[in-house]
Design a protein around this nucleic acid. Structure first.
Lengths: 222, 222
DNA sequence: CTCGTTTAGATTTTCGAAAATCTAAGCTAT
DNA sequence: ATAGCTTAGATTTTCGAAAATCTAAACGAG
């Protein structure tokens, strides 16, 4: 059953989406080898587009490449997460302060909608939808037209930890806290209070890192 | 004449190097379309590895991809350069302050050697060698084992402006200033004076941005 | 003359199979 | 036994050609 008909996207894009989904869903776990032909067969395509997609994920740091040995899902340690989250703090603070004054009512409405989507997805336990809505929420308040390169880096940092974030989202008690944190962040945006916004974002991020670190050191010790 | 024998590297890596060289050498200019088959023929390989290499360059921001239309060498404007250099300032200051205390005599010797290589390459007008040595010089003082993700981002920022830096290096008067700036930077490293180092790096970077911006607004106005 | 349509050529994209390489089990000599 | 060598099977990597799509020039209707 070939799920793909020649549509607007290319087969390589389809392969990239399939790989991302598999990583988020936990079908491909950190450290695991990625068998190219298996992926290709599952998606009903040949290996060429799969390899292109893997090159993209390699640059994003989601897979590691060892020539003639293949691709492996990247394994992150607590120290990696700490470094990545510290970088996010620096870059996101800059982005938030630049973008906040430029947000119009329309943009804020989109952010609020994303927050609602996020809470709803969390409610019904749809991790993939929650991850997507969470991104819309955060990126919606950081994005500004003269900061495309900053956003490129921030997106990269988010990408490299996406699979670990999926773990975090499975804790029901954390979900409630996330919803509350988003409310506080949104309120700061509405008040146009940059310092408060940055403080709330920092707190939200720290909380996530803390939980993630605990999950990591506890559960998947290689 | 196939320049490639099956060696340690893969054909895709060979294609990536070839593309990088062509971009630095100015054979592929900003805005220009990249004809896959032409690249493949020139390198004596097929299109598959060329496409993989292009995916890498796409993630680095060196080429832009439009599905079914092909790849185009990225065109940067003065505003893009300003943003990228501002990001470098933030990330490189962080990296330099972290790395400086960890540099041993051996590391400093490597940096000094890179500075000499850089000056020599400049002397004989070998732009490609100068670019490579310049990287060794700068990265040598930023790199530290617990900052791999930071370095990943910094490397990305350097990559995206590599072709424009090649322009800058063609000015003979600027070359002399670069040598002098490197001396001042190296001296600060030897004194272990973090504040001075950051100040010198900032000055060096600002100078480069200034010249680059002038070259850009003057010459290739599309 | 302008706008939209058709069509031929160029280019990208994907495939299926061949070639190169790696992995690990089995074997031999010490 | 153990270390090193050999070999069969699995996997990655590359190729050459077919299929899909785009570009731009030629054409025709209004």
């Amino acid at each position: 059953m070939n799920t793909r008909q020649s549509g607007p996207g290319t087969t390589a894009q389809h392969a990239l989406e399939g790989l991302r989904r598999a990583i988020i869903a936990g079908e491909l776990r950190p450290g695991q080898r990625v068998r190219q032909e298996e992926i290709a067969d599952n998606l009903g395509v040949s290996v060429a587009p799969v390899r292109e997609a893997l090159r993209v994920l390699e640059q994003e740091g989601q897979v590691e490449y060892r020539p003639r040995r293949g691709y492996f899902i990247t394994e992150l340690w607590a120290s990696d997460l700490a470094e990545i989250y510290a970088l996010r703090q620096v870059l996101e603070e800059r982005a938030a302060r630049k973008a906040l004054p430029t947000l119009d009512d329309d943009a804020i409405e989109r952010i609020a909608l994303a927050a609602r989507d996020c809470a709803e997805a969390a409610e019904r336990g749809d991790v993939a939808a929650e991850l997507a809505a969470n991104r819309r929420f955060h990126f919606g308040m950081l994005e500004s037209p003269d900061q495309v390169h900053t956003m490129r880096l921030i997106r990269l940092l988010w990408d490299s930890t996406e699979s670990y974030r999926a773990l975090y989202y499975n804790s029901p008690e954390e979900r409630a806290k996330t919803v509350h944190a988003h409310d506080a962040i949104l309120a700061a945006v509405r008040r146009r209070d940059a310092d408060a916004l940055v403080a709330e974002l920092d707190a939200h991020r720290s909380r996530a890192l803390e939980v993630l670190t605990r999950v990591l050191d506890g559960g998947g010790e290689r």
